[in-house]
């Protein structure tokens, strides 16, 4: 059967592209490029199926093959190493020549077979697809091949289960549950461990930047809340410097200047401010606090009786 002109054009455009894509699968260095090439081939095949009066199959091709199978490939590539590239140097002696030879030979033989064979005159699927292609397929599938279909269903289930089984990793260490974790935390207490999780920035915190320590309920900065590396590098900022920066803003609002704490603090904090970059505890809190400045103690305005 001679295909119509449109189909011919379609074919002759797609076929070389498909062959090129297949060849790039063969020659691609990076696996992802190969995967893309294969996907291209599959989409083209879907188009060809549709052209060949097999629309159902064409859609299934896109959904299953391109959509599921190739995505699966890409996921695995991701797991395995996306940028792992194959060296194209052949390790097995003579394999390259054998491969090329056999590939060409196979192609030659198959093409030879096809060209030699005499085919009956093509019928086309117009009659078969009368009640739409899916209906025709369904009729054949569920009538003649129902057993095979059931078996294939079992196969799919088996495949899914097998994938689970194959990738299952056996636990090598005992499972750490809540109880175990709690016990471990308690056990670490004497060596400086901590029971509670790391603190949130705190109610009294002015900001929650990474380099600013959180404030505990008493308003004192918590050292561990800043990353150790920042501490080591000296990039931690004291809670005071922030408030210091904001104090100017606050001071400008005169009503606030009436607060006696603020006024007293004015005088103190400038003296101690300089030497507080590595000892946040020693730093006088940047709040209007009255009273002696006590390292580790901070007074926050408005907190009654902040002694502990």
């Amino acid at each position: 059967m001679i295909a119509s002109g449109g189909e011919a054009v379609l074919f002759w455009v797609l076929a070389p592209l498909m062959v090129l894509a297949a060849l790039s699968l063969l020659f691609a260095r990076k696996a992802v490029h190969a995967a893309i090439a294969v996907m291209f081939v599959m989409v083209d095949l879907a188009i060809l199926y549709i052209a060949q009066e097999a629309p159902f199959l064409g859609v299934v091709q896109v959904v299953v093959y391109t959509g599921a199978v190739m995505m699966l490939f890409l996921f695995v590539l991701m797991l395995v190493g996306v940028d792992a590239s194959d060296s194209l140097v052949e390790t097995i002696r003579g394999q390259r020549w054998i491969g090329v030879l056999l590939g060409l030979g196979l192609a030659a033989v198959l093409v030879g077979v096809v060209s030699q064979a005499t085919f009956p005159p093509a019928v086309g699927l117009a009659l078969a697809n009368e009640a739409t292609n899916p209906v025709a397929l369904a009729r054949v599938l569920f009538a003649d091949y129902v057993f095979a279909m059931e078996v294939v269903g079992i196969l799919l289930i088996t495949a899914a289960v097998s994938a689970l089984v194959l990738t299952h990793r056996r636990r090598l260490t005992p499972k750490v549950g809540q109880r175990e974790r709690a016990d471990a935390k308690v056990a670490e207490l004497p060596s400086g461990g901590r029971l509670t999780p790391l603190a949130a920035p705190g109610v009294y915190a002015q900001n929650n930047a990474m380099d600013t320590p959180a404030l505990d309920p008493q308003g004192r900065p918590i050292e561990e809340s800043v990353s150790r590396i920042l501490r080591i590098r000296g990039q931690e900022r004291s809670a005071g410097t922030i408030l210091e920066a904001e104090r100017d803003v606050l001071v400008e609002h005169e009503p606030l200047r009436a607060l006696p704490a603020l006024r007293a603090q004015d005088a103190n904090e400038r003296t101690v401010q300089a030497a507080t970059s590595e000892h946040p505890e020693g730093e006088a809190p940047a709040g209007e606090v009255s009273g002696p400045d006590d390292p580790g103690r901070s007074r926050v305005p408005g907190v009654p009786g902040g002694e502990d």
């Binding site: 394999q95 054998i98 491969g99 056999l102 030979g105 196979l106 033989v109 198959l110 030879g112 077979v113 030699q116």
Partner: peptide, 15 residues
């Protein structure tokens, strides 16, 4: 490769 070689040979012979 061996399998493919065998296949090619068989098909060629049959052909």
């Amino acid at each position: 490769a061996t399998m493919l070689g065998g296949l090619v040979v068989v098909v060629a012979v049959v052909l």
